[in-house]
Design a binder for these strands. Sequence first.
DNA 1: GATATTTGCGAAAACGATTAAGTAATAATA
DNA 2: TATTATTACTTAATCGTTTTCGCAAATATC
Lengths: 335, 335
Amino acid sequence: MKELAQYCGVSVATVSKALNDQRDIGESTKIRIKNAAGKLGYYPNAAARSLKTNRSYNIGVLFVDKANSGLTHEYFASVLEGFKVEAEKQGYDITFINSQIGKKKVSYYDHCKYRNLDGVVIACVNFDNPEVIDLLGGDIPVVTIDHIHENCSSILSDNIKGIQCLMEYIYENGHRRIAYIHGQMNSAVTKARLTSFYRFMESHSLHIPDKYVLEAAYLDVGRAMAYTRDLLDRRDPPTCILYQDDTALIGGLNEMRVRNLRIPEDISIAGYDGNRISQLLNPKLTTVRQDTAAIGMKAAKKLINTIEKPKTTFTEQIIVEVELLKGESVGKVNI
Amino acid sequence: MKELAQYCGVSVATVSKALNDQRDIGESTKIRIKNAAGKLGYYPNAAARSLKTNRSYNIGVLFVDKANSGLTHEYFASVLEGFKVEAEKQGYDITFINSQIGKKKVSYYDHCKYRNLDGVVIACVNFDNPEVIDLLGGDIPVVTIDHIHENCSSILSDNIKGIQCLMEYIYENGHRRIAYIHGQMNSAVTKARLTSFYRFMESHSLHIPDKYVLEAAYLDVGRAMAYTRDLLDRRDPPTCILYQDDTALIGGLNEMRVRNLRIPEDISIAGYDGNRISQLLNPKLTTVRQDTAAIGMKAAKKLINTIEKPKTTFTEQIIVEVELLKGESVGKVNI
DNA sequence: GATATTTGCGAAAACGATTAAGTAATAATA
DNA sequence: TATTATTACTTAATCGTTTTCGCAAATATC
């Protein structure tokens, strides 16, 4: 910048103003300086800027799940991808948060302060974690994904409606003995889906045996396979099985193939997520597509609004629509 | 820090020295200051430190693929996960690189300079991109994944041996008419695998019709399905089909199921990657497991060595072993 | 006991930007 | 014309660290 100032025969202050489009500057010099900046290949120094302005144009991502699958988690990876695209469009970079500074253990909050992050998006973590609670209670703008917290906005995939639509479709096809292999109970997502499931049962006066509702972990193909085996071995097997997600469903699918069960003639199945392969399998999966790109994008927009216009931005829950993909894996049952 | 200095009755210089374990400081004051730092909840300011030292303890990740699947790319997501774990263990943070500063378009290189990144790991991009070449030719330590460049170290999954082992296994099972649906030709990975494929053919005096070798994109389930259809419709269908990856293979699998072909009795298939579901399908997939965790970890170690000990660190290619997972999807053929 | 060396600490400059305050020159107003 | 307002720029302080250098006290050496 000094160099640039010298080259243009002005002071560094003038250069700074020119490049930041301040008004305290003549039009002609502004253009001259900008051109020179281009020619000399000038780029600013983020650290200096951040130090002076307390704005890093850097957003933190907290993204650790229990199983430590981290980025391998397809759903969150694609949410993050959507987030990244929108954040970058608005001039923000993305940095992963962890709980260290150098090799010293610190809290997530301190890490954010250390890096001077402008905001944080939290997803896929154990929200009971005291460090996460600290972060939520702090002074850094936060947006959470699929989890409600009073202090911050959240983006929620419409799990209630997702399961509801799915159940309606299954019910309309005549199914009454419906099993549900669901995700971890400590997750808000699971709770929402399960509540919606039971609510549907109740409102349609269906009785579901306890043994039909089974807890597994998301993406746990092996467990899904084992539970499917158990369910199919029962004296009164279900006519339809819901899985926690499309990936885990593969485990179940598998078990059915071993038994030469045709889908959907002999048994119906449904997944959740609407991921890449779900619509390429044969039969196409009946599933609920979550709009990960929209979730990520809305999270980024909301967070950046909260950062840039804290006074005029509401704290709110934004619900993102889901879409029932009817597919072909749920068939008609004669009642 | 000023506060801390006041609290301890010393100067800020002394505090800095104490916290950084410099030698120019008394043992007792050092301990006193460190304790006080803990009590007052002091954390350093990354921007100030970076400004002064020209070290950000921040590593950039360049990670854009053609299809823009970005993080959704399972292989690279898990490589990145491995990278992240190791980098964080060594006190580095991870930031995504893009080609903007604020809302202004700049080169990747300039972006790195702007953020003062200590090093960069490049994966999954189009290495012909002039901006990427710029970055490789610059003064920032770089490690590439699955791509060789003279200026920097690279971590390479052993694609040559992977395909070789796979082919040997298939050959030993009596297969002679082997088709290969491979990935994009502009990728070094594809070239390596294809070279290895042809080399095997040559050394075993096998003739493979041109129509048996087909270019698709990685993860392109649809294309894999379409090509499988073509192959199976031929007068001389292959007895074994190799797919570009385990995910795309699902497309082929699918087409076979439609035709009621039994695997491996009627037709054999093999994938690549050894991903999560490959060993949970029935039959278990014959595939080549790539050690993504090791690739990521070694990339991080190499990069950090290059950053911290530039004088004593070799530029080298590190090859990471693959493992043939025999699975059950390749069967015996009578010759 | 005089001198040299080591040790422990402080003062101050520097990193590269932003910004409040000040200052000429020019334009507008009375 | 004298005064005020505006414009365009400069000066200098500042952000929170690190680091060089200087200095005094303590210790070692002769």
